[in-house]
Design a protein around this nucleic acid. Structure first.
Lengths: 319, 319
DNA sequence: ACTGAGGATGTAGCATCGCTACATGGATGT
DNA sequence: ACATCCATGTAGCGATGCTACATCCTCAGT
């Protein structure tokens, strides 16, 4: 049972096609196919079977791929222990962020990480639909994701989920709005309003549904944007009200006010998603630690607590 | 960090010399040396340093070797999971036994294991001194060892210790002996006797010291044998008394009687020693399970309990 | 039904890598 | 001083894993 071959099987389980594995590992599909064939011969049982144009893993294949993941973890841990021993957190860590947190928290995180010699963080932004977050861990070491509390559609995949922040979602209003003087708002205040929503499939939607349910009627959604900057601009311009995350919106324009929502739990959970094997890498854990710490600062600044285990070392976070 | 190279380092940590690793892995010393050199280059720090004719691991080398052991465990576990999946416990398991248990328990164990298709057990006997047991795990998958309760000189090495049996050590007397009618004996009964001992360094010695201490004088040791057959023959012939293990002596000659000792704890602990990585192998675990079960039968037959966790699956035993 | 695209898998050849065989050099013990 | 033991260099060979190219199969679109 060669490790490199097992690793290929693990990749196949994650990516689903020989071609994808080949691309991801910088080989030709032929090479991957050959190695899988050898592995199959060594294992003594069929691991894949054809399905339409592609292939799928047999149950035996899945079983073996699971073990392969454990091996990958052990191997990554060995690397990590070694890097710790040498106190060397160098290496490249790829990170995918969604826009809001990328704008507010990431600069501080990266500037702190610049202190670590040899550590290179490559960050990119992208605002995927909820379901896609997990898939992206195949291509990025750390994926920052946001979702509603209690809704964790990943995790079944064996991903490590590091909680960063539980962030309240306030209601953004123009300073001139009739509700702008209130200390807080309720569902019934808001069902009359025109809303700026998010594209279908994005996390915020559920809360709006809760408001509709409690307010007793459907709200009108005038526009749908995923980019907060645009939303803020539209709020200012009087096109409607919208959810605005309390901490990660950065400096708000003076004519835009945030009001907490009462009676409807409105918060988003911000987490980092990491594949368990890459979570072992010292460089990755270093980045995660700083993320957790900075997120805690952000949350502590206004009183609301961060997710959990801030500063406790992300390596110890549950799966 | 290549796994094969890490494995070589692990072997080096265990065996202590390049030549020994080369022999054990069926290569030339040159090949081993080259691979270690490459590993060192990859790791970026010296792993070994010369010491006289040979080499020793640096502290960095030890650290990495420890991780290498973890990787080996994960890899062996992957194999085991796979074998379980296929319900295939085939493979060769080498086993080293000391004489008494080899004569009484092993035949039953091996005949039961003959039922398992593809499983080949190669057993050898050898009665090493206490300290050597651990070293032998480098060359044998399972090493049956005996020691006094509480004395576990191994374990620090990271070996898995599977308890099989706690066996009382009775006093063997000729049927014609003045003490042969007693239901049990005490230290003071025995200090007057001429003894048949074991060679220095063998486990039984400590109990004899305890008897001397409680009896208030030194006993006379006429002969020293490690082989129980010889001891029994000498007891019969009236040369002295000796410790005789209660369960593992097989069919005793009619003119030899066993009397329990009171007041001095006299028992030996029989355990199986296994390297943690080979302990993961399904074939090895299968053999261990049968060993544990048969040992429990042996102990239960006369009322005294076996060590612990009989039949609970040896894989779960503590390290 | 025909055709093109996408995906897996064979075949031949080539480069890399890990091994052996042999030689070298330092440390040890007689 | 010499023989011995052990680690380590060097040259060369063979296995192994890759690429390039070709083939086959399935699905989708016209």
């Amino acid at each position: 049972m060669d490790v490199r071959r097992l690793d290929l099987l693990r990749e196949l389980a994650e990516r689903g096609s020989v071609t994808a594995v080949a691309e991801a590992t910088g080989r030709t599909p032929s090479a991957v196919s050959q190695q899988l064939k050898v592995l199959e011969r060594e294992a003594g049982a069929p691991l894949t079977e054809r399905s339409g144009r592609g292939i799928v893993l047999t149950s035996a294949g899945h079983a073996l791929a699971r073990s392969a993941a454990d091996v990958a973890i052990a191997l990554a841990r060995a690397d990590a222990v070694w890097d710790e021993f040498r106190n060397d957190a160098s290496g490249e860590v790829t990170l995918l962020t969604f826009p809001t947190i990328g704008a507010t928290m990431l600069p501080a995180v990266l500037s702190e990480l610049r202190q670590v010699p040899g550590l290179v963080v490559r960050a990119t932004d992208f605002d995927p639909e909820l379901a896609e977050f997990a898939e992206l861990t195949a291509d990025y070491d750390i994926v920052l994701a946001h979702t509603m509390p209690g809704v964790l559609p990943w995790g079944g995949r064996g991903l490590r989920v590091v909680p960063l922040l539980t962030e309240p979602l306030d209601i953004g209003l123009p300073a001139t709005h009739r509700l702008a003087g209130r200390s807080h708002l309720t569902a019934s205040d808001l069902v009359e309003e025109t809303w700026l929503g998010v594209p279908p499939g994005f996390p915020f939607e559920r809360i709006l549904h809760a408001i509709e349910q409690q307010g007793g009627r459907r709200v009108e959604i005038a526009q749908r944007f995923s980019d907060m900057r645009i939303v803020e601009a539209f709020i200012q311009a009087g096109f409607g009200v919208a959810f605005v995350p309390r901490y990660t919106s950065g400096a708000l324009p003076p004519d835009l006010v945030l009001k907490p929502l009462r009676g409807v739990p409105s918060a988003r959970q911000i987490v980092a998603l990491v594949r368990p094997d890459v979570a072992e890498r010292l460089a990755v854990r270093t980045v995660l630690d700083v993320l957790v710490a900075k997120a805690a600062e952000l949350g502590a600044g206004t009183g609301a607590g961060a997710g959990a285990g801030a500063g406790a070392g992300a390596g110890a976070a549950a799966s």
